[in-house]
């Protein structure tokens, strides 16, 4: 067993893991943070996506010891407590979430995109979210949501 120190959504944790334990298993099974899902568990669907030091990663393919000392963000910690992040609000208002299973990963992929490119085109959004699969929406409303959020967030910053 190995000691793992990490910060998730602003909270520090010290836990023991096996060499083969993935970041997804740490989040779900050890910390009971369940928004990252095991949709395929092989890096295809993106519903396990989280931010590691602001970089989008697929937690099912990430060895937990590789995030030693790093800061992890899931959708549970995207907004300040009691608040809703503009991306979350936009996904809600533009029907970007249907069954909700891909939504946490989708929102974090959108966050990673907007961090780099605050004013994306629809084509930019397609490329930015290309690692995440959704079976319900046909993607149109997800793209609408990200564009709506980007407009709102740019306005807020201005």
């Amino acid at each position: 067993m190995h000691l793992l120190k990490l910060t998730v959504n602003g909270q520090n944790y010290e836990i023991t893991v096996q060499l083969k334990t993935t970041l997804l298993e740490v989040l779900r099974d050890k910390l009971q943070i369940t928004s990252p899902k095991a949709g395929c568990n092989q890096g295809d669907c993106g519903t396990c996506s989280v931010l590691v030091d602001s970089i989008l990663v697929k937690s099912c393919l990430t060895n937990s010891l590789s995030v030693q000392g790093k800061k992890i963000i899931t959708v549970e910690g995207l907004a300040k407590p009691g608040e809703v992040h503009p991306l979350q609000q936009a996904f809600h208002e533009n029907y970007g979430a249907q069954c909700g299973f891909c939504t946490p990963g989708m929102i974090l992929a959108a966050k990673a995109l907007l961090d780099k490119n605050p004013n994306p085109t629809r084509e930019d959004v397609k490329v930015g979210l290309s690692g995440n699969l959704c079976r319900c929406t046909g993607y149109t409303k997800i793209i609408d949501s990200v564009i709506a959020a980007s407009e709102k967030m740019v306005t807020v910053t201005d």
């Binding site: 907004a79 996904f91 809600h92 208002e93 029907y95 979430a97 909700g100």
Partner: peptide, 21 residues
């Protein structure tokens, strides 16, 4: 009409069968 479960979906509060740990 906004989805009754929409906010829970976007904040990670929705619990699916696998999310009961």
């Amino acid at each position: 009409v906004l989805r009754y479960d929409g906010l829970a979906h976007v904040t990670g509060e929705t619990h699916f069968a696998d999310d009961v740990i």
